[in-house]
């Protein structure tokens, strides 16, 4: 049975990765399982300079999901390179850095640094709904996505994925911008912009007022977007949004994802990613599938 896949030039032992921002830089989860079992680890969104993040409350629970407005709190790329990367490199898994910035110049500077580090790829975050400038501001339009991606492509030789926001009118058009700009793959989807109100306090629950919705609640939206994009673009897709089991992962792969990420699912059970790998293998056995690549995009 073969579970190996190639995502945008990154050879992975299985299609299961952990989604940016839900897994830190791996340390906390290494207490629960051997990180070498994962296909890849996608780091917390990392910027050129450290970021302190948004005011609390930053998270809250919703029906079958959660809202977050962390605000990309991270220690900056230099700290990452010195402290977290050596730790992650002890494991036999691929390391993909989720990169974010406020301006094109920041994205470019950051990716110049990332290109020199011992990492396997970059996931460009053009989709965070929780910071005032940048990110989603670029991710909203064909031109914005194409301009940033092209600028980064010029300085980055490593595999480049671009992560898109679902908060757009036409996801296919935006995904085409990624392809046209020469990126190697597209990550779908980041969180859906949402809001919750405390009816006792008569005020928003999150200090940031709005936040990103993730978890099983968003899975049908994510599957639909992966399906639509897979039909129209040729570059591979890293699919995510509400995956908590092998069955969920298979659904995304049938829709056209080459690999998948587990996000909020890690919060329900720190072993969700490992159980998902097992679930995929069980499905392959039941269905007598020799190679996982056979099922990508067959629906």
């Amino acid at each position: 049975m073969n579970t190996k896949i190639n995502l945008a030039g990154i050879e992975m032992k299985n299609p299961v990765t952990v989604a940016s921002g839900t897994f830190g830089y791996g340390r906390e989860y290494s207490q629960f399982f051997d990180l070498s079992k994962l296909g890849a680890i996608i780091t917390k969104g990392t910027s050129l300079k450290p970021k302190n993040g948004n005011k609390p409350p930053r998270v809250c629970e919703t029906a079958s999901g959660m809202l977050n407005s962390i605000g990309l709190q991270n220690p900056g790329v230099e700290y990452f390179a010195q402290n977290d990367l050596p730790f992650l490199r002890k494991y036999d898994t691929k390391i993909i850095v989720n990169a974010c910035g406020n301006t094109i110049e920041e994205y470019v500077e950051l990716c110049k640094i990332l290109d020199k580090l011992d990492i396997d790829g970059v996931e460009l975050n053009l989709s965070c709904p929780n910071v005032k400038q940048g990110c989603m501001a670029f991710g909203n339009t064909y031109e914005g996505v194409k301009t940033v991606t092209q600028a980064v492509r010029k300085v980055l030789n490593k595999p480049l994925l671009v992560k898109l926001t679902p908060n757009v009118t036409n996801i296919v058009e935006i995904a085409k911008a990624v392809e046209d700009a020469g990126a190697d793959g597209v990550s779908l989807i980041n969180t859906l912009l949402g809001m919750k109100i405390d009816i006792q306090k008569k005020a928003p629950v999150l200090a940031n007022i709005t936040g990103g919705l993730s978890g099983p609640a968003i899975k049908p939206v994510a599957v639909r977007m992966v399906y639509q994009v897979a039909k129209e673009v040729k570059i591979p897709i890293l699919g995510m949004g509400g995956i908590i089991s092998g069955e969920d992962a298979i659904e995304f792969m049938l829709a056209g994802a080459t690999a998948i990420s587990i996000g909020a699912g890690n919060f329900i059970d720190p072993q969700t990613s490992i159980k998902t790998i097992q679930g995929i293998e069980n499905y392959m056995q039941e269905q007598k599938i020799e190679d996982i690549n056979e099922i990508i995009g067959i629906v």
């Binding site: 921002g21 839900t22 906390e28 989860y29 977050n68 962390i70 709190q73 890690n266 919060f267």
Partner: peptide, 9 residues
């Protein structure tokens, strides 16, 4: 969110 120091929630 996570309860273990990973999500910074």
């Amino acid at each position: 969110g996570c309860g273990i120091g990973a999500c910074l929630g």
